[in-house]
Design a protein around this nucleic acid. Structure first.
Lengths: 183, 183
DNA sequence: TTAATCATGTAACACGTTACATGATTGC
DNA sequence: GCAATCATGTAACGTGTTACATGATTAA
């Protein structure tokens, strides 16, 4: 459901094509959700059937025609409904962490293998943190066309990332020293 | 792939039935991966086709026969291979966080809605932390039949949970105070 | 001249979820 | 007498992934 609702959320800001949507998705939501173009087109088709969006074709020359999607009243209702009614368990899968799956069975391979694994994860998350810092600097939050509320919520999402990356890095540091200690 | 390899990992400890596997799964791996019985049976079928596991039937009276699965040499190779060759990007999806998706579009609904949402998440994670504490106490890590290495890795997985839950709770606390401040 | 961008998708597969079905045994 | 446990699955659906196809335009 999150993908559908992410698309509704973006269409609620502006009507646009599937192509635009998938670009906006990677630009603004990819930090906590990813979607390929194929997925976006498929979802748009089913969402149109359900009456959450409508489309109109804009004829173009020497390019494929644009199919511009807009959110409907029904779609808006659906979005507000999703924003208002919570299912906390569903919203926090928390499971499906391949890294922990690997670590759980780490005793089956030499320690150096797991040490290297954690170190590479460390690099990965340090890089993520740097990327986040850069993003913070480049995004212009003072754009007057954007409401303060939106900016606040967007910043909170960013801040989650920071907390999450830092916590992971701290854990990796501890884990590495424990593994090395035991050798 | 993680599900298949989780199953291989468990079968590497002990041969058992699909039914046993799904119980072990919920008992020991559900903290970072979940699997339903239907999924387990399906995966076992395909893994047998690939030669990673074999099965033999144990006839029972007045109960369905047991189909006991064992890991093969090929399966062990596959497992070690997975443990040894890393793809850090794949192992850290990090995306797909429905909670952040919701928060991102939070400006579309009254602030109280998002405050309540975060408060319920807070309760959720506090409960998770308590559960983890309980688990720590009940699990007997001094079982002599289990190698020290295994215990170490299992504990590291637990410790990840602790870090993760605590970081999330801290972020929620900050987020709540920021949202309330802006009102 | 090659690659990237614009803009649309289809097809097949992988994996997760939900619901349903069977039928005896054991515990409350 | 009823629910839970044992033990096996099937079927259908939802959603994510990967690969492929088309064909003009623009920038390096």
């Amino acid at each position: 459901m999150s993908l559908k609702l992410g698309l509704l959320g973006l269409l609620n800001y502006n009507s646009m094509t599937g192509y635009d949507l998938s670009k906006f998705f990677s630009a603004s939501l990819s930090f906590f959700w990813t979607a390929t173009t194929s997925q976006v087109y498929r979802e748009l088709t089913t969402m149109e059937k359900e009456g959450w969006v409508t489309s109109e074709v804009e004829v173009q020359f020497s390019k494929p025609n644009k199919k511009i999607y807009s959110i409907t009243e029904l779609g808006k209702k659906e979005m507000i409904n999703w924003l208002t009614n919570h299912n906390i368990e569903e919203d926090n899968p928390g499971d499906r962490n391949p890294m922990l799956m690997k670590l759980f069975f780490g005793a089956e391979v030499p320690k150096e293998v797991m040490v290297e694994y954690l170190e590479r994860n460390q690099n990965f998350y340090e890089e993520k943190l740097r990327e986040l810092d850069q993003a913070k600097e480049t995004i212009n939050y003072n754009d007057e066309r954007v409401s303060k509320d939106k900016v606040m919520y967007w910043r909170l999402c960013e801040s989650y990332g920071e907390h999450y990356y830092k916590a992971t890095l701290e854990w990796i540091k501890e884990a590495l020293s424990i593994i090395k200690e035991e050798s």
